[in-house]
Design a binder for these strands. Sequence first.
DNA 1: GCCTATAGATGGAACGTTCCAATAAATCAA
DNA 2: TTGATTTATTGGAACGTTCCATCTATAGGC
Lengths: 352, 352
Amino acid sequence: MASRAKATILDIAREAGVSKSTVSLVLQGSGLIRPETAVKVRKAIEDVGYVYNRGAANLRKAHSNVIGMVINDLTNPFFAELAVGMERVFQAAGIVPFIANTAENPVRQEEVLKSLMEQGVAGLIVSPARGTTPGAFRRIETAGVPIVFTMRRLPESRIPVIAPDNHRGAFIATEHLIGKGHRRLAFFGGSSDLVVYQQRLGGFLEACETLAIPVADRTIVEGETSRKGGMTCLETALAAAEPPTAALCFNDAVAFGVMLALRKRGLEAGTDFAVVGFDDVAEAEHYMPALTSVAVDTAGLGERAAHVMLKMIQSRTTRAEDHIGAVSLVVRESCGPSRNARGAGAGDAAWA
Amino acid sequence: MASRAKATILDIAREAGVSKSTVSLVLQGSGLIRPETAVKVRKAIEDVGYVYNRGAANLRKAHSNVIGMVINDLTNPFFAELAVGMERVFQAAGIVPFIANTAENPVRQEEVLKSLMEQGVAGLIVSPARGTTPGAFRRIETAGVPIVFTMRRLPESRIPVIAPDNHRGAFIATEHLIGKGHRRLAFFGGSSDLVVYQQRLGGFLEACETLAIPVADRTIVEGETSRKGGMTCLETALAAAEPPTAALCFNDAVAFGVMLALRKRGLEAGTDFAVVGFDDVAEAEHYMPALTSVAVDTAGLGERAAHVMLKMIQSRTTRAEDHIGAVSLVVRESCGPSRNARGAGAGDAAWA
DNA sequence: GCCTATAGATGGAACGTTCCAATAAATCAA
DNA sequence: TTGATTTATTGGAACGTTCCATCTATAGGC
């Protein structure tokens, strides 16, 4: 069985009657070793209950095969889906990514990044916390550790970003709403200190502009990017004199909140008020009514981010192209039946 | 600014005009250093853009301050809540836990554990994947690395477990259902290879037994522990000749699925069919109708697990007491109005 | 002035790996 | 046979830290 003190490469060497160098070679799968020797060594490894000490190895190698994934909100299932995509490609490369949560807190993010750096990560995939200061990643950059941002970017940074085409996503969603006959539109959730917010809101506004929705008929309500935030947004919007009849939501969580709030008022998403989400998380399809949402191919973005990271590490560069992922609107039930079925009076909702 | 090759403790020593030992002492916050010297060294550390090499340190120290958190399903918001609790206490201890996802796959779990061990973790908090083989953790145990299981346990293992009182939770929930006048009861979701399932189902059955629900009136439908799984469960249950009028669900995800499936049939959770969930995730409160669920104090369990882990590391033991957390039923709307309001005919649901 | 404490700083030997240069053994060319 | 080449294996010097034992001042006691 295993000995008390942890076994090292030398213990294996002694056990197998070879030198430590030979053991090291076997561990690395070198072809220079005679097959019988390799077998003998591998048996010894098994016998002594050896566990590889990557820290010691990295001391020599400076090539660490650990990748850190820093996420701002583990609670959002969106990030879980993103993580799944990444893990798929990292797994194939024999890498285990370590996930750390910053809970949208820049101070915590600082700690997390420090710890990851001390651990000697080969690269970092980050969705930065809100309120991250511009210089937060400079240390890491000058240390030459590759970083890629996902979903969010920092206002002025040169760090590559993998994100969906937020502007276009919002644009086509808004277009859809207008095509359904809606004339008083809202944009719900998010806050203006996020670049993503600017982009999505931008797409919304541009669609309003090109399809001639007057400024007076556009309602913009900022709010938390959660169910609760969505509920609040709806309440404030409906309190207005001329409330909107449809809303594009910052993300799906907000959209779910809006639908819940509607039900609470005895209204039904789809027939009484149109709502479209953003991200198309798995849940959207199974909701009742099923949520129309902008699909961003979350797992695909995760895969992409992982690939870019791998490439950066391999070519030991800290630069890479941004990647803006294609988006598409997946139409379900939350915007109601087609225009014909609803008739011209669609805008006059039940509460009016 | 920072130099090209990464700075070491010797660079700092040179910069500050002291010895490497002094720098090391400063890094560890030793009181043996004259304050002015410490200041000088700290300035040098800043100047050269030094990043601590924990791998090298661990080589000497064998005391790693990294804790791994191995989770079987990152997609379940429940685990995010658990993680939040743990992080609270680890953060206070100056530790950053690394989270890794096994996606309910024992093979992946094996890889993840191996990687974590190679990284030299000080301890492991694990929610084991389904189908984990009995010996999966023996290597780690003999290596002397403390492990704590959360939520799930392995059938025969001696590893300490932090989990809610599943049996009692299911018991009181079932009691509640019966108290509401329901006589044909179902247990939805989960599968019998999970110990948790046995416990929750056990509580359900015991309540049925003591409150005299005949075996013929108990429906048990296994299924995925997800929304989709819940939907399927409801469908199969309602297809029976004498369908149940109430269900205890394996967890909240299943419960949400059941409610969705009800709506799809034009039925309403609460008035037409009673459903109670398990775990009481944050979402339960905001659902429509709000979900009655067994609260397990998720974050509290997380904190507890973290504390136990810290204690084990500190006292360098691999043993600890199990902790079975108290549970409580939080009654909301998904089981309908009180018995009186519903009248005696409660059992005769709309579809009968 | 001398001896002893004490505070502060230091050199060197680990820790467990990798990698290079060197060796030994076996094969081949002449 | 000798020398060159190939194939397997090996010792030793790093890598960046910690920690122990040692050293040097300075201060205090007499």
